[in-house]
């Protein structure tokens, strides 16, 4: 306990482990390779400011933006897509989520199959679904609604089945002990405790859908994105910018309303 300063029992500085070094080297190599593959070009960062195309973004033609036929009409369509797909997707998600939770699944095969299917469905990006639907049933909001319904279902079952997983199993056991059949037992034993979360998750999915439905039109699935895509192809970036401003204001307002509703629910 009373050592004197000196070169006595100093430990040797540990060398970096070969594994650490090789992982770092591999990651660096991969990053360099990937950067070349994507055409990494840092000059964009400074040349972007002198790009003559910027002039095309300005000034914003507000007259055109506020002309109801140009933006308002498709915007309403966007909401209609978001609303119907939230209702359908979240409605379907209720039984599927119960099938996907180990607590409430009626049997093991149902549990495994529903999980596997939903994982695959979620692995397909939302706009891929939109494009598939557009191809299958034609351009327009109808296809977009189908795509977003699937997307809502995939997101909702993930969120809600986790809520069900975490629910108190006590009431469910009580309902089963009383001899209840599966569905009624769920109805009385689990649903009341998780229902506020269900509504809150649904509102959240609606927010996601409003955002997603804005870009659906880029692949022909209706809504405001259709106008965005058209103006983009005519190189009317001033109009594009004007629409974006409106979109963000509206999306922001919806989020604020939905967030405050969700806070009151949970």
């Amino acid at each position: 306990m009373t050592p004197t300063p000196g070169q006595s029992n100093r430990p040797v500085r540990p060398r970096l482990r070969t594994r650490t070094v090789s992982i770092a080297a591999a990651l660096t190599a991969f990053t360099v390779f990937a950067a070349r593959e994507v055409g990494f070009d840092p000059s964009t960062f400074w040349e972007v400011w002198s790009n003559p195309l910027w002039e095309k973004f300005w000034p914003i033609p507000w007259d055109w933006v506020f002309d109801s036929g140009n933006v308002l009409q498709p915007f309403v369509e966007t909401f209609q897509i978001a609303t119907i797909s939230t209702i359908l997707g979240c409605g379907l998600a209720l039984p599927v989520s119960f099938a996907m939770s180990s607590l409430t699944a009626p049997n093991r095969p149902t549990y495994l199959v529903s999980r596997a299917v939903m994982n695959v469905v979620r692995a397909v990006p939302d706009l891929f679904w939109a494009k598939l639907m557009v191809t299958a049933i034609g351009i327009g909001a109808f296809a977009g609604s189908w795509a977003l319904t699937i997307f809502s279902l995939a997101v909702m079952v993930k969120l809600f089945s986790e809520t069900v997983d975490g629910a108190d199993p006590g009431p469910l056991e009580a309902a089963r002990a009383a001899g209840g059949r599966h569905a009624p037992a769920l109805r009385t034993g689990i649903l009341p405790t998780v229902f506020p979360d269900y509504v809150a998750h649904s509102l959240y999915v609606f927010e996601l859908n409003v955002r997603a439905s804005v870009v659906l039109g880029l692949v022909g699935a209706g809504g405001i994105g259709r106008v965005l895509e058209a103006q983009r192809q005519f190189f009317r970036f001033d109009r594009v910018l004007g629409m974006l401003v409106i979109i963000f204001v509206v999306v922001w307002i919806i989020e604020q309303v939905s967030v405050s509703l969700r806070k009151r629910l949970i």
Partner: peptide, 15 residues
């Protein structure tokens, strides 16, 4: 730093 660790007697734990 090493000298300080030696003074409190835990230089063997430096790393």
């Amino acid at each position: 730093a090493m000298v300080a660790l030696e003074r409190v007697g835990i230089v063997d734990k430096a790393y």
